[in-house]
Design a protein around this nucleic acid. Structure first.
Lengths: 111, 111
DNA sequence: CCATTTACTTTTAACCACGAGGTATACGGT
DNA sequence: ACCGTATACCTCGTGGTTAAAAGTAAATGG
């Protein structure tokens, strides 16, 4: 039944993609596995999330793509544009704001 | 233009409401202001978010409501049911899982 | 007596994460 | 040669959730 907007996941795929691609170019399938890795299995984003996100970020000018043959296989590698870096900064700021606010609220009510 | 699903806000209204109401009963309008207070103005949830959330949480059995006359005014006070407490625990666990995973991913990529 | 604050309510809209399904090629084992 | 598994990419439908805005009405205060 789709289990659509699970708690606290809005914006997370975009944040993780931008972060990972800020360091090195990667391709879709790789990102799917890498995200599981770097989050200690806590977050798993399927291809149905990753690919559409990549397209829309590319379309928005945050990512650029290039095709690259590796052995016999062809992969589409993505990396950040300058715009993508700005977008990442803004998202990180959003994330910190929300995270800190929720922490704050928790401390207050725990007191 | 609505800007409907802003980054990182899914689940946040529910979490904050349940947290606040776990301590003491409150009414809608009060919650609107209280949330701004305890988040240091970082999160502002309008009435269009708060009231529908309250209804749906009540309908789901997480909250119970009682009408109370204060002076000449009548207010609807909400408080947690046992189910609501369970729901809060589950949500807190979700929140921690996501938050920690994002932190983890950030440290890794920053390294 | 009028403007502001308090309090509650409803409507409308759009985004976006997700699962599931689909294609095609390469590779390893037997 | 054959078959299952892993790699790699892609698409569709869904619906839950936040959010702004506008509306009602009573009380308060100057």
């Amino acid at each position: 039944m789709a289990r659509t907007n699970p708690p606290f996941m809005t914006g997370v795929p975009e944040l993780l993609l931008l972060r990972l691609l800020a360091n090195e170019e990667m391709y879709g399938y790789e990102l799917v596995r890498r995200i599981q890795l770097v989050t200690g299995e806590a977050i798993k984003l399927g291809e149905g999330v990753i690919y559409p996100s990549l397209y829309s970020l590319e379309k928005a000018g945050a990512l650029k793509a290039r095709r690259k043959k590796v052995g016999a296989r062809e992969r589409i590698y993505y990396s950040l544009t300058r715009q993508g870096k700005k977008r990442l900064s803004a998202l990180e700021a959003d994330w910190q704001r929300i995270r800190d606010a929720i922490n704050l609220a928790g401390d207050t009510s725990a007191a």
